[in-house]
Nucleic acid binder design. Structure first.
Lengths: 348, 348
DNA sequence: GTTAATAATTGGAACGTTCCAATTCTGTCA
DNA sequence: TGACAGAATTGGAACGTTCCAATTATTAAC
């Protein structure tokens, strides 16, 4: 037992059949007699046989392995951990396993990781690309016919599938909610203008604003780093305008927390004197004070859906790129002033 | 280019050498002439060669693959996400990749996942076992000579390595801190008595208490589900005692939050009228109100260390089981009343 | 009892790599 | 020039599986 692994040939010998028959049993082929199947299975259990997928995989050059790769840009962000769980559930029930790797936003690391996954023969890839990923980075993958689903961030020009959350609808809903509370000067705060996600979120804001009496005003868009510090700085800028905003739709939750900090520094209480809406619904949003009104994006759902898209492509022969959008929803909490007794009235 | 993958033989043909030479280049062997090496590398780049680890792996039956598996019981818990990141950093720089799977505390799922990983030929496994895992579940792995490092939870009787955090020292430090603040009736709250982690945390509490003037009192140990709801229930029980406790060391942070909820429901303000200490330092601990005093366990560090232990075993021929303990530290925040101006005095 | 059809089984080749032993090439020295 | 050492290269066998075509066993039909 100790020396050498037990192979299909050992099983064949012990069960008194040929290796071909054992192979058929392994694949649950209907060609093999029930009683033979039983015997073979018994012997396999007895000898502690473990299937060698590497070898199998080598033979069937056409059909690919039962591995899918998932690479994320920041696993410490619980958003991506949830996403990975979503992927895992569907992928696992399809008999696949997942390779997971973290790039920490490094494009070099991302290249290495993807190369390594190819060497291991993944049949498909789910990628949340590191910042700065270009269409050309995806090129070798599509050339090799490996299905790819991009999540969260899309890469303009890449001929692969993508699944991003409905950023446009999210900020749009935020604006509508704020106007329904009586706000008219609503700022869009935070984020770097050169990313696709920023464009989409801004465009939702712009569209909703242009349907208000006030209309869209360029001056109310204040970009900054997409961080807490960025939020502080941006709101400082906003509140120094002649005609101050009374509400802010923020690029993400981190910015929104920064905005709250900045407001307090000016003796303005977020949720009471000023309405703040975030984006992402990070875990702290619920427990922060005031609890943050934000846009929730269901990372686990995205993971599941991305996995389904990927499996579909793997099963279809030719990978057919497909663009999808995942719904978002507004979570109303305290920071917009709507959750208290006298919603928004005094803010207008 | 489209049809069939490019193999070592294609490279050999194109470079005018034999496949053996190409193989040597692949392994960076010093036997091959510099200029040949250059040519071969150039051709590989040109034809877009990707190494087939499956095939390589098949041939070298002795040396194992460059894959390590990591299975966790709850990836949505950010603790484990951090742990996975820690593993990833060290494993990746050693040229390995990681399979990651989530068991959601299901022992069946865990069995499947481990089987699947074996089929893929992992060279080692890092496992945070699902509740109820027994030594026998690890048996086939040690029989096959596959190194395993158990993390977070140990499995009594399993002949594999383990790395757990120093639960004993953690609760012990918590008790000492509370007594230094003047507390004498300190309860131990939450957790199910049948787990190893519970035993360790309780024993740290017991030891520290028995060194106080009061001594250890069985009545002050109140177990419950290790959840927020469990905490609420347990503290209710605690506060209905004739002689009420003035402080609680909780099984984990979730319980601690529940204890705070339960106290407030009784008009007792945690951090001012009663001291609460958690365990784990989950991400919300910092932002909660009051900010939670707790024991921090550095999940990323545990991941790194576990990976190092595993690699050591993989590189050594024979896997030598080794038990290790990871240090913890007390993070003092507001919930124990020590962080305000008049620490603890009024509580005694 | 022969033939045809169907069910079940089988040996060998192939997948892409590495290893081994053997071979060829280069230069050096007597 | 021949012999020899060392450097560089090479052809085949092997790893554990699957696939194909071929074979054998079983049953049905006349």
């Amino acid at each position: 037992m100790g020396k050498g692994r037990v192979t299909v040939i050992d099983i064949a010998k012990a069960a008194g059949v040929s290796k071909s028959t054992v192979s058929l049993v392994l694949q649950a082929s209907p060609l093999v007699n029930e009683i033979t199947r039983g015997k073979v299975n018994a012997v396999m259990r007895e000898l502690g046989y473990v299937y060698n997928r590497g070898a199998a995989n080598l033979r069937q050059a056409n059909a690919r392995s039962k591995i899918i790769g998932i690479v994320v840009n920041d696993l410490t962000n619980s958003f991506f951990a949830e996403l990975a769980v979503g992927v895992d559930t569907v992928v696992q029930s399809a008999g696949f396993v997942q390779f997971l790797s973290n790039t920490s936003e490094s494009i070099d690391r991302q290249r290495e990781v993807i190369a390594s996954m190819r060497e291991h023969g993944v049949s498909g890839l789910i990628v949340s690309p590191a910042r700065g990923t270009e269409a050309i980075d995806m090129k070798p993958l599509v050339a090799a016919g490996i299905p790819v689903v991009l999540v969260v961030r899309s890469v303009p020009g890449a001929k692969v599938s993508s699944l991003v959350s409905d950023n446009h609808a999210g900020t749009s809903a935020a604006v509508e909610h704020l106007t329904s509370l009586g706000h008219r000067r609503i700022a869009f705060v935070g984020g770097f203008p050169d990313t696709a996600v920023f464009d989409e979120r801004l465009s939702g804001y712009r569209e909703a604003m242009s349907q208000t009496k006030e209309g869209f005003k360029e001056e109310l868009v204040i970009s900054s780093a997409p961080s807490r510090a960025g939020g502080v700085e941006a709101i400082g800028q906003g509140m120094s305008m002649a005609e101050q905003p009374t509400a802010a739709v923020c690029f993400n939750d981190a910015v929104a927390f920064g905005v709250c900090d900045g407001l307090r520094a000016r003796r303005i209480e977020p949720g009471r004197d000023f309405a703040v809406v975030g984006f992402d619904n990070v875990i702290e949003a619920k427990t922060a004070v005031p609890a943050l009104t934000t846009i929730s994006v269901d990372p686990q759902g995205i993971g599941q859906r991305a996995a389904q898209m990927l499996l579909k492509q793997i099963n279809a022969g030719k990978p057919e790129a497909e663009q999808a959008v995942s719904a978002v929803r507004l979570i109303v909490r305290e920071s917009c002033g709507a959750a208290d007794n006298n919603p928004g009235r005094r803010l207008a």
